[in-house]
Design a protein around this nucleic acid. Sequence first.
DNA 1: GCGACAG
DNA 2: ATCTTGTCGC
Length: 229
Amino acid sequence: MKLPTPLHLWSLSPTRAVSMQKRLAARVHTSALSKDVRLVAGADCAFVESDRIIACWVVWDISDGTLVEKQHVVRAVRFPYVPGLLSFREAPALIAAARKLRTEPHVFMVDGHGLAHPRRFGLACHLGLFLGRPTMGCAKSRLCGVNCDPADRRGAIASLTDREGEIGRVVRTQRGVRPVYVSIGHLITLDDAVRLTLESCTKFRLPEPTRLAHAEVSRLRRSLSLEIA
DNA sequence: GCGACAG
DNA sequence: ATCTTGTCGC
């Protein structure tokens, strides 16, 4: 996959990283997604010995539920986990893995937030700018904002808001499970992000693209752990 | 000062 | 995220 010229280097201090987020947040855009979304890419990361990161992208066909392609990279971890700065830890590896994709996904989904971030610039937004393509976030827990608890039925939705208004939506993807937190990343609308989330959660709480990517990095981590031992 | 805090 | 078996609840 051909990617745009990188917007900046990744060797930044946490303080500089925060400044960078504030600056880049202005470049994020909401826009209608093309009508025929079929290929949905899902990402996830795993860590080995806390010093190496495994980043993977899986391309899932929403029309027939098949796995089209999967690519991954293993790199050295260069940034600590700091709430609000997740992209500086995971994005570099995810971008490298995305370059290896041979198919062109219609939208990229990540395990984390996009706009539903303290500075409105979560991992999904950061990746959206670097990939120059539609992205959205579907997180397992909340980072910021307030919300009501959606009804306990598949498809129930509650608005996630912060001072300026709606920054995402809390979606119950299956009855009897905890809801997921959906927000836009870049070049997509919140309505489409929620729709894609529900269409991708065919049988589990989490979307298939992201769920499959998680299974893949877990498998890769096991084999790498064995090489060490 | 006291919580909250994506993965 | 990661360390980890059985076990409480629907």
